[in-house]
């Protein structure tokens, strides 16, 4: 049970943003490219200099050891990054059950990253993020390069995770249909502000 709170968060042309996401709630954010959606998420994860602060219950971002905070609020980038040769080297846990659910098998750990498609890498990046057992999720177009079948698999995994662990989720999406499926609350970034959509 945790509540994610953004307090006067301001970065470049975005903000000040005030937003509360309750435990288990999924909030969708959309907006044109360059509107600052990714900037906002990265400010929450505190990997970019910004004004304002973020809270997860009593945990205050600016007062928490940065690696700890970033593990706690898991951010999934739109474009996944890989730096070792094989898939498995990037993982601190080996959750075979989720791996199978995402359409892989235990051979996948030994795959060369350079052989994986963008979509495969995106699904694996979600799995890698969940190893940290984040208590909040910041998702930047998590299904951006997935086909319909994989999109629905990923959606259900994230929904289950959010529900089971009562985790607040901010979900950046471009797809109107997805937003209707996933979110009760939907904001659009307009002129650096979150407006109800």
């Amino acid at each position: 049970m945790a509540k994610l709170k953004l307090e006067n968060l301001q970065i470049e042309h975005v903000g000040p943003v005030n937003l509360t996401v309750n435990s288990g709630e999924i909030v969708c954010i959309s907006g044109g490219s360059g509107a600052g959606k990714s900037l906002l998420l990265r400010a929450v994860a505190d990997v970019l200099p910004h004004e304002g602060d973020a809270w997860l219950d009593q945990m205050q971002a600016s007062q928490t050891n940065p690696p700890t905070w970033r593990k706690t609020v898991g951010l999934l980038s739109a474009e996944s990054q890989w730096w070792f040769d094989t898939v498995g080297e990037h993982f601190t846990c080996k959750n075979n059950e989720l791996l199978n659910k995402l359409g892989f098998n235990s051979d996948t750990w030994g795959w060369l990253v350079s052989r994986c498609s963008t979509g495969e890498k995106q699904r694996l990046a979600l799995l890698r993020l969940l190893c940290n057992q984040p208590r909040a999720l910041l998702l930047d177009e998590p299904t951006g390069s997935l086909d319909a079948r994989n999109t629905s698999v990923v959606e259900s995994i994230i929904r289950e995770y959010a529900k089971e662990k009562q985790v607040p989720v901010i979900w950046v999406s471009h797809s109107e249909e997805q937003i209707r499926r996933i979110c009760k609350t939907h904001y659009e970034v307009e002129n650096g502000q979150l407006v109800n959509a």
């Binding site: 994860a45 970033r70 593990k71 951010l75 980038s77 996944s80 990054q81």
Partner: peptide, 20 residues
């Protein structure tokens, strides 16, 4: 940049992220 930031986002400290 993208890789370093990604490693930080996964909770590595700066020394581990840029060690290589």
């Amino acid at each position: 940049r993208a890789v370093l930031e990604s490693r930080l986002l996964l909770g590595e400290d700066w020394r581990s992220a840029i060690g290589q």
